[in-house]
Design a protein around this nucleic acid. Structure first.
Lengths: 199, 199
DNA sequence: AACATTTGATTGGTTATTCAACCAAACCCC
DNA sequence: GGGGTTTGGTTGAATAACCAATCAAATGTT
């Protein structure tokens, strides 16, 4: 039966995608050739272009895969925030390949319109998600929800930067950094005595 | 004359370096060829290799240049922090080429040992500088200086992440993000009346 | 003349992408 | 059910372009 998704086709497609992920995260974008990806997948070169029009398209598909791997849990409020931070700590220990690839794709996306679009989409979705959590926490504290957006921008930024430092610097104290970020975001939410807003 | 001060030699060297910066920041690492850089500089291809053994070496030299462009002021204490944040805001508006190149080089450095070393050096120096400021501020407040390291890590991270978002997302509200980061780092320093840390 | 600088053609290699041919299973008509 | 045909899947070689690096020769400078 020639149903739109013959399992065989889906299989090899996934195989190529997985191989692309492996090679790209191991060697980086500019050192990864289609030939090498095909070898890793155990198929002929031409087949890669049968499933993906161009290297761009392939990498774009890999990006989607990577994004799926970075999803958080869905707990609510402060508990959700805690859970997300813990999950992030674990990711920092384990999935360095994924992170390296992500940073790589961000950089390539700076000069590749199509890829850049994909990266931007994911980044925004991520930030929106963080903003949602921040809003919940602010609501729990019965505080003004306005700063949620700015807080989300900073947390998203810090997450990216911690990833980067963790990849580059073998001596980087990732756990400490995440804990500090946690504390900082919390104390941003408990309005400190700076302005005049006392509880 | 083999003297390091032959002005002509220094001149063309600088010319090539500048052209490399221009081309690299415009087109990204993997789309920049020596040929193109030579053209931009108005010299023959071979000359580039006369001054820089390899593309790696050239890019490494450009990195040093970029780092010089990113230096902060040297004011002390809280005033220094304020000044640095303001300077950062201005940079976010203007020097996007420099930032794009920096992110690019971070990414390439992930899989290029030599470049990676250079990037790491700069990153550490930067973080140490931030840590110094944090220490000064903590001292002004007569607070425990221990968390300075963690705070510096988070601020460095956030700076990187804000750069990235500012490059990628045309709607990113950079000023708001920097102000929020400022507030968050301050409130991390005024120990908020928070009960006990989660453990 | 000796040296530093500059040139541009050459080398040896890599790359993404295209293409004609091949295979096997699915379908149709008898 | 069995020949012929369409179709999706797969192959590996060919194409055309590009690249970093080298080098012998030319030019400029002291």
């Amino acid at each position: 039966m020639l149903n739109e998704h013959s399992t065989k086709a889906a299989d090899t497609r996934a195989k190529i995608l997985h191989a692309a992920f492996t090679v790209l995260s191991r060697q980086g974008y500019e050192n990864s050739s289609i030939k090498e990806i095909a070898e890793e997948a155990g198929v002929a070169q031409g087949l890669v272009h049968y499933y993906f029009k161009s290297k761009q398209q392939l990498v774009l598909a890999v990006l989607a895969e990577v994004c799926r791997e970075m999803e958080y849990g869905t707990e609510q409020g402060a508990a959700g925030a805690q859970a997300a931070y813990e999950k992030f700590k674990n990711m920092l220990k384990g999935s360095s390949g994924t992170h390296a690839l992500y940073i790589q794709l961000i950089a390539v996306g700076l000069h590749d319109k199509e890829l850049g679009r994909g990266v931007l989409d994911f980044l925004r979705q991520d930030r929106t998600h963080i903003e949602g959590i921040a809003r919940e926490v602010l609501a729990e504290r019965e505080a003004d929800p306005t700063p949620a957006q700015g807080i989300a921008a900073v947390i998203e930024a810090a997450v990216l930067g911690i990833m980067i430092q963790n990849l580059i610097d073998p001596d980087f104290k990732a756990d400490e950094a995440v804990d500090t970020l946690n504390a900082m975001s919390l104390s941003a939410i408990f309005p400190p005595a700076q302005g005049s807003k006392t509880e």
